[in-house]
Amino acid sequence: MKPAPFKYFRPESLDEALALLAKHGDEAKVLAGGQSLIPAMNFRLAQPAILIDINRLSALSFIEEKRGQMHIGALTRHSMVERHPLVAQKAPLLAETMPNIAHVQIRNRGTFGGSIAHADPAAELPAAMTVRGARICLRSTRGERWVDAPQFFVGLLTTAMEPDELLTEVAFDELPKKTGWCFVEVARRHGDYALLGVAATVRLGMMGKVKDARICFVSAGETPALATNAQDALNGQAPSAELAKAAAQIAAAQDIDPPSDIHASARFRRHLATKLTERALNTAFARARGETR
């Protein structure tokens, strides 16, 4: 379990990092927290010729609120997001998601941007950020562009990033008023990749009916896609336990394409999707009505 040989660069500035990516992007991997990359290299499943270590780019570690938008820097460690008061206050869905990410030691090292860039459908952040309509900032020597989460997550471990681009930050709206949220997952052991997880927000409109429901799953397909059929079934309806159950069944039957693996069959995952979505929606309804936090 020793990695194959590689060249190592440790840029001191963003410009230097982008220049290295412009030159070596095709054969380079960016090293941030290394919580997925290093194991893959030790198994020799990944054999990048070049590593560009961005851990010196401290300017990429930040959590800010600007004009109703949360901005989280790519190098921000999970543990910082988990404990940050702004996140607790303005992004309760994210706050609820964070403790589900692996173990304390991994959260101390792993980075927000790294998890998004890795685009593992079994990871929590891609689903939570898709629900929140996040925009992802990509920088290169060619300039800067912002990509919406659904367009960013292209496939299994595949994103819209070009080889010379660096993910620098993620931005999303603070949770609107009268909006409930829930993140819930089932994992074999605490800290494992989820057998299945659900991130959901429900915004209530006039007359207390659902105005904007968003649901996204963990470990239920190749990308963290929104459960549009279930969302359509929820929007315009009065929240109730029956509605949650009906929407959950629609989500599990129509909105996901879960894999079978040694830990769970696709059928069991669909079953979990039904049960967890129902739980998530009921919790989100109650929170939207201000009944609980």
Binding site: V186, L195, Q249, A264, S265, F268
Partner: peptide, 21 residues
């Protein structure tokens, strides 16, 4: 495992599709 308990209680694909919901 949870997956195996699910199969034991609700049957596998062949024996009882859909019963669990």
């Amino acid at each position: 495992s949870p997956n195996r308990l699910f199969e034991l209680v609700y049957g596998d694909e062949k024996t009882s599709p859909g019963r669990e919901n």
